[in-house]
Design a protein around this nucleic acid. Sequence first.
DNA 1: AACACAGTTAGAATGAGTCTAATCCGCAAG
DNA 2: CTTGCGGATTAGACTCATTCTAACTGTGTT
Lengths: 148, 148
Amino acid sequence: MIRNLTEHDKEHLQEALVKSGQKVTPQREAVFTVLLAERDHPTVDEVFNRAREVMPGLSLATVYNCLETFVGCGLVRQVNHERESTRYCPNLAPHAHFRDKETGQVHDIELPPEVMKSLRSILPPGFDSEVIEISFLGRAQAKDTHSN
Amino acid sequence: MIRNLTEHDKEHLQEALVKSGQKVTPQREAVFTVLLAERDHPTVDEVFNRAREVMPGLSLATVYNCLETFVGCGLVRQVNHERESTRYCPNLAPHAHFRDKETGQVHDIELPPEVMKSLRSILPPGFDSEVIEISFLGRAQAKDTHSN
DNA sequence: AACACAGTTAGAATGAGTCTAATCCGCAAG
DNA sequence: CTTGCGGATTAGACTCATTCTAACTGTGTT
Ligand SMILES: [Mn+2]
Ligand SMILES: [Mn+2]
Ligand SMILES: [Zn+2]
Ligand SMILES: [Zn+2]
C-alpha cells in the first residue's frame, strides 16, 4: 500500500530539502512517501496514522514539522476549505480544488493557463498577486476510486 | 462613525430574516449596522468591539449567533484566508478577495461574469459546483482608505 | 572525548469556534 | 393584567487543530 519512493521522487525530495539548507531524514522520507502514495489530500492526522504504520515511533509533532518544512521548500501545498483541518497536496501543477459536499473528498481540477491569465486580468492596477487559490464546493458524480 | 441603517438596508435585513422565519432584534440590527458601516471584512472580534460601542451589553456569543444567522439567510458571506480568523463581508455581488500580505487588509475584487463562466468551464463532466471561492494573496499599492 | 546543531519527541499551552444551560423578552391566550 | 410559549441572548465551559516548550537524539566536527 505504501510503496517506497522511486529514485526520481527521492531525488526530488533531496534536492528541495538541500536547496533550502535542510536535511533528509527518515521521518521526512516517511511523511513524503505517504503524501505521494495516496493523493487524496490527507489531513495531518491522516498522514500521521498512515506514516505510523511504517514508522511506529513517529510523533504527531514531527508530522507537523515535516509538512511545514515541505510547504516551505515548495514540495507540497496546503489546502484549506472553510475552517476544516488543513489538508496537504503534492500536486505541483497549477490546479484548483473541488470539495464534494457529501463525501468530503477533495479533487484536483486542472487550471489551464488561459484561465489563470483571465483571473490575473481582473486585478486592478496596483494589485500584485503571488498566490491564487480557487476552490469549488459542490457534488461530484461517484467514480471508481482507481479507474485502471 | 457607525451611522444608523438606511430605510433600504433595514428593509433588506428584515426581509431576509423574516423570509427565513427569524426575528429582527436590536442585537441583529447592531451587528448588521457594523457590517455595513465599514466594509473592511472584520473578524468576529472586530465586529464585537465595534458593536459594543453602541450596545455595551452585547455578548460575543450573540455576535457569533448573529453572523451565523446572516450567513444562513444570505445577508453576508464568510471569508477565510488560510487558517486565520473568519472574516465577514456584506458585499453580495460576485467577487473575489485579495489579501495584502503586509497590511493584512482584505480587498474586494469584482468578478466579471465572463470570468465566472470560464471558471465553471474547467470542471470536468460530473462535477457540479454551487460555490466558487477565489482568493489572491499579494501586495496592493497603498491607497487612501477613503478617496472622497 | 566534548561540542555544536539540526531534528525529533511528549506534553503543555493557545485560541477561534462551539456548546450548554440559565435567563430574557415580545406576544398571544386566558 | 397574569401566565405561558418559543425564539433570542448571555456567561462560561468546552473542544480540538495547531503551536510552543524544553528535553533528548544522532551525526558530524574540533
Ligand atoms: Mn467525489
Ligand atoms: Mn492594502
Ligand atoms: Zn491538490
Ligand atoms: Zn468581500
